[in-house]
């Protein structure tokens, strides 16, 4: 932890906003753009429809259309990816605001697992025999959170 020097509160705000700009430009924007391209590609090829039908029955349990499964797939790879796909499906009118809210905790609870397996579990030297259950807990958390969020929307 670095030693905090006295700073003006306005400088802290500006530094934070700058951090937000950097994340916005280097993470949110590329992720959203990729998601828009992927969802558009899935749409014109008809694959999005197929995914919607295949995952429809499962996602219906959570008050979501089948296409929303792509949000969870995107999230598993990276949280920004999940957010991007959710934004893209929202602008396409596939999911509404309430459904975005249902998906929000799940995007983070099962987010970026592949990356974090190395960066967190590897770095903290957690025994690898527990990896399976650790992944399972995250995915279970994500699905349960969608149930819980239904009460808030």
């Amino acid at each position: 932890m670095e030693i905090k020097e006295k700073k003006m509160i306005t400088d802290v705000f500006v530094d934070g906003a700058r951090k937000g700009w950097n994340i916005g430009i280097s993470s949110v924007m590329p992720n959203v753009m990729m998601a828009f391209v992927i969802i558009h590609a899935l749409k014109i090829t008809g694959i999005l429809d197929i995914l919607g039908k295949v995952f429809g029955p499962v996602m219906a349990v959570f008050g979501l259309p089948g296409e929303a499964a792509t949000v969870l797939m995107g999230a598993w790879l990276s949280m920004g990816g999940g957010v991007g796909v959710a934004v893209s499906l929202f602008t396409q009118g596939v999911i509404d605001g309430a459904q975005v809210a249902i998906l929000t905790p799940a995007i983070f609870l099962m987010g970026a697992q592949i990356q974090y397996a190395g960066r967190l579990l590897g770095a903290a030297e957690v025994e690898s025999r527990h990896y399976g259950i650790l992944f399972g807990i995250c995915i279970l958390n994500a699905f349960l959170s969608m149930f819980v969020m239904r009460f808030f929307v």
Binding site: W21, I23, G24
Partner: peptide, 19 residues
């Protein structure tokens, strides 16, 4: 363009969290 429209919210949220 859509991502651009999201950025002020991200900037403002992180600015407040920083403070």
């Amino acid at each position: 363009l859509f991502a651009l429209n999201l950025i002020p919210t991200v900037m403002f949220a992180l600015a407040v969290v920083s403070v």
